[in-house]
Amino acid sequence: MSELNRNPLIDWLLRLYVLASFAFIFAPIAASFVFSLNEDRFPSLPLGGFSTQWYEAVATDPLVWEGLSNTLTIGVIVSLVATALGFGAAYTDYRYRFFGKTVYLALALLPPTIPVIILGLAMLAFLSRVGLSGQSLSVIVAHVVMTAPFAMAIIRLRLSQMDPDLEAAAWNLGASEWAAMRHVILPFARPAILAALFITMAVSFDEFAVAWFVSGLNETLPVRVLGFLQGQVSPRINAIGTFVFLTSMTLVILAQLVLMRRPKEGNPDG
């Protein structure tokens, strides 16, 4: 790139701005980590001594363990169902043209744009009518509605990178539709399917609001966090928060790594 009037000063200022942006984004995550290991009751500067007491307090709270196991169970089921539904929708969009496809796609992609509080309100009202409220099942149902669009988008992007003649070639060679799906489409989409599993699990893991509304009794971990928030300030939330951050960051990083890995390029940077 050979731009004429490049000003090194402005270039450096812009780069500094990018660094400042990342500082803003990661400051709360870093603070949560630092103060989870700080002995002070009320987190501030200067830092107090190093302590793992908040982790111990959290680890001995049976409610936290119950919340954690609920969160994980729900997260795994949600990610499996949402990814399966999202894959079906992505493949439908990739292969078929039909009347009303716009409506179909709108249904597949719109849920994340509806505020969670409204979705939660509508679902609680609706699910309690059909006798599903207050159960883990209702949380799973709600989370799948919200996460399937992410799975669909990720897998659709991957399918759009595929040569459209590949599937037709498999048919020409005598493969049935099912065989072509199993030997051509699924292997090609596998990285995106894995990424979708990770991402939907991360979203389910973070999504407290709907769970909070929809499920009265079965608390997931984020709901537990909300409970802490409404109560008094406690550094225990930093310990839980750090755990939540690490889990979802791991999932998102895994998803990105899976998607970035290209067989031809050998090893990508990093």
Binding site: P28, I29, S32, I199, A202, V203, F205, D206, F208, P222, V225, L226, L229, I237, I240, G241, V244, F245, S248, M249, L251, V252
Partner: peptide
């Protein structure tokens, strides 16, 4: 994709 609530 990381908890907005905890960041807040």
């Amino acid at each position: 994709f990381t908890s907005y609530l905890v960041r807040v």
